[in-house]
Design a protein around this nucleic acid. Structure first.
Lengths: 224, 224
DNA sequence: GGCGTAAGTAACTAAATAGTTATTTCAGGC
DNA sequence: GCCTGAAATAACTATTTAGTTACTTACGCC
């Protein structure tokens, strides 16, 4: 960063920056926990990767478990921040629904960390997140956005009525998440690489198809 | 104590049973790995729980990683064994498809271990299964069964053509798996317990609905 | 019945690992 | 300028952990 003019001194003064230090630790921890899981991750390596002293990790976060909690909370914030960029109020409802599907798939493609982190959170029955309490409020606006889209689609005659926003969302993310998170074992079973471009493109189209048919008020385009 | 034939005085002879010993270790390991993950599980505790000496674990399985591999392989065998019990050749195609969906959901409900084990396998990019090679052959008959069902449904006029068996299967398991595996964080987000009977029943119906609409040749009846 | 091998045991070890202690260094308010 | 508390460091420790060693005990085969 910015350098002082005193190059002649024997000791290079250490520029302090608490916020940046905290953030660097959090970033290194996110990476490590995602790669190795909560128990597989090593505190010493997190410290090394962040370029910070291990003691600082305890200074800012208390202990390994709380650090993991902080990582998860930040993850939910990221999910929320990205989610609200989506404007589902414009375009035709079916087209907006496609954008919602694309958003979910793109998000987890761009944030591969997210899945292993969430898997670990669930392995521990989400106890690291239960303390937070913020999770719910973080999700709410997103939920409302989907509800509004469904209402708009029904009013429009594109979507059928009685659809549940939460179930729709779990469906979309489920299709994304399982494919990507279990892609290694699935690739083994099906003897091909589910992560390559062609396979991913096919899966995206498949998801569009499944969701379109699910919400559609009438026979989905196929062959009528 | 000069009596020599008394069983309880000197020593109780230990009955040996290699197969049973191996199996007990494997069962204890399955439990532990499922609860705590590969890195969270402790070799000493696996030994304790199985009632065996830790040395036996190394005798039968080599080391912790290979033991984990053995657990995963056994899991795939279980999945295969259960799968082939399904007879999708009888009943109407839509009814058989419903049974397939129920099978997936029931399997993961009855084998909660399976999901955390598979999550761990994927966290380590399935490297523990790559050695096995049996995985693919284990899956094949199941794949064929689904293909046959799809063909039957198309011939029947119930299902549309051009459906891909692998994608259908991934879709069904994805809907099951994500809901159950990430139920803890989802329950937090939606502020209700997704594992209770009512929620589970609703999700089962939702899955039937999604799949029925996906495979249907025509407009699926509104509330089948 | 005795003999070789596999099953089983207890106690050990070397390396890791989460968390601490004691101490120094900087930044900003007065 | 200087003083206080937060930021940072290096070296340490008490445990834990996967894996071993050296040994004993039962089973099956001739």
């Amino acid at each position: 960063m910015t350098l002082e003019t005193d190059a002649k001194t024997t000791k290079v003064p250490i520029r302090r920056d608490p916020d940046a230090s905290r953030q660097r630790i959090l970033a290194a921890a996110t990476e490590m926990f995602a790669e190795q899981g909560l128990d597989g991750a090593r505190v010493d390596e997190i410290a090394d990767r962040s370029g910070m002293n291990k003691r600082m990790l305890y200074h800012y976060f208390g202990n390994k478990e709380e650090l993991f909690g902080a990582v998860l909370e930040e993850l939910y914030e990221t999910i929320c921040r990205e989610s609200t960029k989506l404007d589902l109020g414009t375009g035709s409802p079916p087209e907006a629904m496609q954008r919602l599907v694309d958003f979910a798939l793109n998000f987890y493609l761009d944030n591969p960390h997210a899945m292993t982190l969430l898997n670990n959170a669930n392995l521990h029955k989400a106890r690291h997140l239960k303390q937070s309490g913020r999770v719910r409020s973080i999700h709410e606006p997103f939920e409302d956005m989907i509800k509004a889209l469904l209402d708009r689609g029904v009013a429009n005659g594109d979507f059928r009525g009685g659809l549940n926003a939460a179930r729709l969302y779990i469906t979309i993310v489920g299709l994304t998440y399982y494919y990507l998170s279990n892609g290694h074992t699935l690739s083994l079973v099906y003897d091909r690489n589910l992560y390559d471009r062609k396979e991913l493109r096919a899966w995206r189209e498949h998801m569009h198809d499944v969701i379109a048919r699910f919400v559609s008020a009438d026979q989905p385009a196929a062959n009528l």
